[in-house]
Design a binder for these strands. Structure first.
Lengths: 242, 242
DNA sequence: AGTCAACAGATTATCGATAAAATATTTGAT
DNA sequence: ATCAAATATTTTATCGATAATCTGTTGACT
């Protein structure tokens, strides 16, 4: 698996490699929500000692992707309808503010980078024919970058970093939904509309479009969650046999 | 210093003790913005090994109180006018949303807990006569709890946790300002007004009052920062002599 | 004097071993 | 058989030691 090695080589430190790996494994649900994260298992999985792994887990705990129970170890954060609603409600407001400021403050550079990001996203296939139960890595990246481009002129780094953390959390729910129900539409037109209203500097319409975009995701994910085919906590990282 | 021991005894794990200690030392600026955080120094300071300390630092990094430069170690996050403005702008919006929802959704329990929190805050001295260059711990706690009470009925845990992280960051700027300029007014009336407009369910007035409350802090802190008597990076945790 | 390479000292990142805590299993009494 | 105390096993949390990296200093050369 060249990906893992590549990702690891790129990192200057085992710690950051562990962080990148864990984040990716959690966001794509290779590590399922609720799964126990035994250090020994992760050590084997990533081929490193306990320290860099625990440090990475600690960081992810602060981000809400991992939960630590004192003296009982780490597990992947659970998912739930309540948490989904909480998350999406919060996203709508926060992305709303960021988008408003971005539209009000963005210059021609912002417009250009938004167009560019949209173009890249629209040319990228969402699903890899071989594995239709997972979104392509490249598409995910372009998608994240498109939404980041929308709000990039917002001028408040703190707000932007909060936004991107929430965006990540949402990605995890989407992965889950796709694992359960298979590929979803590649919503190019929805993104195009978002871009258009933003470029036309119509704040109200842009906020509404963004809200609907988020609501659409919420609806799809909520449906998957409700028809709970959740073997959730079963994907344990490692358990000593007998 | 019984505080340190007490705080430490209360924690089930060295890790969480380190976290609490570090957070507190950073928020009160006993560890100054920009200060290098050498592990050896922290080991002596807190009397524990490197692992729990590094794990705590990693977590604080995610919260933005600490910065990690790969292979160069940790330091306390810097402060700046730009960051202050970014932070306060973001707070105004996020606390605004939380406050709106809380006012719209809060029941009589919310009203009661808000009244109680205000009462406790108003009975608490802000400064300890002995050390007028630092806000009393108790006041800080009651203050945080009063503001938490204001938004507690908001119904979105994610939003609340973001709010409280931003609130913490702001506390650090306030500490800094007080270290530089000495005690500030104990703004009971300002808090009382906030509570009143919230209880009267007047969303617009409440948001405005909250905005002004934050702007007042921003103004005071910005003034201190501008007259920069910053020996900032000088409070290094430990440096091997000669 | 100024620059740079090589070295020495300090600091970070990581590992492997161990103590502490939790969980699972056995055993003995009712 | 049932429950609970006692024990064994697993897992977590932490330490001390070491390898890797960075930083500051010395000294040779222009």
């Amino acid at each position: 698996m060249t990906t893992i090695l590549a990702e690891r080589e790129a990192q200057p430190t085992l710690n950051s490699a562990a962080l990148a790996q864990l984040r990716s494994d959690i966001l794509t649900c290779r590590l399922m929500p609720g799964a126990k994260l035994r250090v020994e298992g992760l050590r084997e999985r990533y081929g490193m000692g306990a320290s860099p792994i625990r440090e990475a887990l600690m960081r992810l705990e602060a981000e809400g992707l991992v939960v630590l129970e004192q003296n009982k170890g780490f597990k992947v954060a659970d998912v739930s309808i309540d948490n989904l609603n909480d998350l999406m409600d919060t996203r709508i407001e926060i992305e709303g503010v960021a988008l408003r400021w971005s539209i009000e403050r963005g210059g021609v550079d912002w417009e250009a980078s938004l167009l560019a990001a949209f173009h890249r996203l629209s040319k990228q296939e969402k699903f890899n024919p071989e594995s239709p139960r997972a979104i392509s890595n490249d598409w995910n990246r372009e998608h994240e970058e498109f939404h980041a481009a929308l709000v990039s002129a917002c001028g408040a780094p703190t707000l932007l970093s909060i936004r991107s953390r929430l965006f990540e959390q949402a990605e995890r729910y989407v992965s889950l939904s796709i694992m359960a129900d298979g590929p979803s539409r590649d919503d190019v037109s929805e993104h195009q509309r978002l871009m258009k209203v933003a470029l036309s500097r119509n704040v109200e319409k842009a906020l509404e479009a963004n809200r609907l975009h988020i609501e659409a995701t919420r609806g799809k994910v909520a449906a998957s969650l409700a028809s709970k085919k959740k073997p959730a906590a079963l994907s344990v990282v490692n358990r000593k046999p007998k």
